[in-house]
Amino acid sequence: MPKWVERAKKVSQRSQQNLAAASLQEVVDEARSVANDIQFIIESSGQGVVQSIGYDNESIEAVEKFYRLAAKQPSSIPFGIEDFERLLSLYLGQVLVERALGEWTTYQGKYHVYFPIVIRLSDGNHVDVFLFCQGLYRKQVRGSLDGRALIKFLEAPGKLATP
């Protein structure tokens, strides 16, 4: 094999690793401020927020309530429900981090994930918060009938985890 091919392979592998590390850092940075972003969106929609959005159960319920209303009336958020689901995913992941249940990481296992940035739970398994939140309003998951799917997820995130 020519030397330039070997060198190209090394550069490519290094670039993929750098991309994964950069993407992870970008997700972590965005997740740290997502509660403020969601609060701004809710307040801008005219629905208002009684308290500041944090990582407590009341805040989580308020965010899910807004999400479900927005899913029924997509015009209430100008950038689309799919983009809000991405913010919801970041928020849910950050709740796990803030509650010391897991940490952001890149997934390198053998199972399919929606997005390669996942939460590694304290038991070493991984949970794909992006997959959970994608189209959540259409899913029949625990808590979806009473608007508490996020709370139910947080009670047992390991149920949806992969090694």
Rank of each mutant, 00 (worst) to 15 (best):
S15N: 12
I60S: 01
M1R: 06
V50C: 07
G46L: 09
A31G: 11
Y67D: 04
S122Y: 02
P157K: 05
D37V: 06
Q13D: 15
D128W: 01
V49P: 00
V11H: 04
Q47I: 12
F66I: 05
R142Q: 08
Y67C: 06
V118I: 08
N125K: 09
G46A: 10
L131R: 10
V95C: 13
P78H: 14
E26Q: 10
G48S: 10
R148C: 06
L19K: 05
Y55T: 03
A161S: 10
G143L: 01
N125P: 00
S44V: 03
D29Y: 04
L24T: 08
L160S: 06
P116N: 15
V118E: 07
F84M: 09
S59A: 08
C133M: 07
V34I: 14
V49A: 15
Q73Y: 14
E6L: 09
Q51D: 15
V49I: 09
A31Y: 08
L154F: 03
F130S: 10
E61D: 11
W104C: 11
E103F: 02
E26S: 12
V97G: 08
S144A: 11
G124K: 08
I81S: 12
S33Y: 11
V49M: 11
L145W: 02
E6G: 13
E58S: 13
G93K: 03
L131H: 12
E64P: 00
A20P: 00
R138I: 08
Y55S: 05
E98W: 05
I60A: 03
E58F: 06
P78A: 15
Q17L: 14
A31L: 10
R99T: 02
G143F: 01
Y137T: 11
R99L: 11
F115Y: 15
A31C: 05
M1T: 10
L160C: 05
D37E: 14
I42N: 07
Q47M: 13
I151G: 01
L150H: 01
V141L: 06
E64M: 01
D128E: 08
Q25Y: 08
S33M: 08
A21W: 00
N125L: 06
A161Q: 04
K10E: 09
Y55M: 06
V5L: 14
F130G: 04
L19E: 13
S44P: 01
V97T: 07
G124D: 10
E43G: 07
V129K: 01
I77S: 07
A31K: 05
H126F: 14
K72V: 02
L154V: 01
I38K: 02
E98F: 02
S15Q: 06
A20V: 05
E82S: 15
H126M: 00
Y114P: 01
V113K: 13
G46R: 08
R68A: 03
F79K: 15
Q39M: 13
Q73K: 15
R148M: 07
E6P: 00
Q134E: 15
V11N: 02
I60R: 01
L96E: 02
I60C: 01
K139I: 05
F132W: 00
T162A: 09
